[in-house]
């Protein structure tokens, strides 16, 4: 299948992107690696009039250590996240999770920011950045703003990035030596997660247990209260509202959340 017709514009700067977004509003879509957008266009689930390609904006592709944080440009490809020595040292969860996104070909094109802006609750990176407590830097006509991760993922496939805005950067705290784990449960290796759990120290985030990735607040509270991993994990499904689909019903997803949370906490504690 092939996309409906559109006009392609290759952006030469962030300002250029923003002016195009202001001009075309919801008729424009930002194209970075295209690994989420192009399948949607081909299935004609979206029919934008204008596609704005940001994949050549080198100013959006970087991994930089800045003080207590690592700053990752939104158009940084998964492959570069996987290979980043800075991230491997300071935020090892991210290279590991990025290595599970799609397949090699997808990781050669797909971008860190693109995956996050897509807002798929079953995706891997949203849960990871949520567990890490990332901050999102968003640029719009009114200027630049910073959004903490819990407020970034707003609804099913919907994030805090407005139609006339562009995600520039994701900032994650450096956590060298802190225990981490990512437990992804799939049907096949390169499928989307049926459920996944990211753990960083005692912070836990769940993928595909709600319309958005979410923190397992009850688990974290139980851990803070001195519960063991196994005990705390029992609370993993609290407050979740997972979908029922052909892979899993709500009850099974709740069960998986508990099992995977326990495993993630045990692994994180051992690292």
């Amino acid at each position: 299948m092939i996309p409906a017709p559109f006009s392609y514009v290759r952006a030469d700067s962030v300002d250029h992107v923003l002016s195009l977004l202001v001009e075309h509003g919801d008729e424009a879509k930002v194209l970075a690696g295209g690994q989420s957008l192009l399948p949607i266009l081909k299935m004609r689930l979206a029919r934008p009039e204008v596609v704005v390609d940001i994949s050549r904006l080198s100013e959006l592709a970087y991994v930089r250590v800045e003080g207590d944080e690592v700053a990752i440009g939104a158009a940084t490809r998964h492959r570069e996240v996987v290979d980043s020595a800075d991230l491997q040292r300071d935020v090892p969860l991210l290279p590991y999770v990025a290595s599970l996104v799609g397949d090699r070909q997808v990781r050669h094109r797909g971008t860190f920011g693109g995956s996050l802006v897509h807002g798929d609750p079953a995706a891997d990176l949203p849960a990871a950045v949520l567990a890490l407590g990332a901050t999102f830097v968003i640029q719009g006509p009114a200027g630049r703003r910073e959004v903490p991760a819990p407020e970034f993922f707003q609804d099913y496939f919907q994030t805090a990035v407005g139609e006339d805005e562009l995600l520039l950067e994701i900032r994650v705290p450096r956590v060298p030596g802190v225990g981490w784990a990512y437990e992804k449960f799939t049907r096949r290796a390169n499928d989307w997660a049926i459920v996944a759990v990211a753990a960083v120290d005692n912070r836990v985030a769940l993928a595909n247990m709600s319309m958005t990735p979410m923190r397992a607040v009850a688990v974290e509270a139980a851990l803070a209260g001195g519960a063991s991993a196994a005990q705390a994990a029992q609370a993993a499904a609290e407050g979740t509202s997972p979908v029922t689909d052909m892979h899993a019903d709500e009850e099974y997803r709740g069960h998986l959340a508990r099992v995977l949370t326990e495993r993630a906490l045990v692994t994180a504690a051992g690292r």
Binding site: P39, D53, S55, R104, V106
Partner: peptide, 12 residues
């Protein structure tokens, strides 16, 4: 680098 050419635009 390997890519899936069905998910890349020619113009890219």
């Amino acid at each position: 680098e390997s890519v899936k050419s069905c998910t890349v635009l020619a113009v890219q």
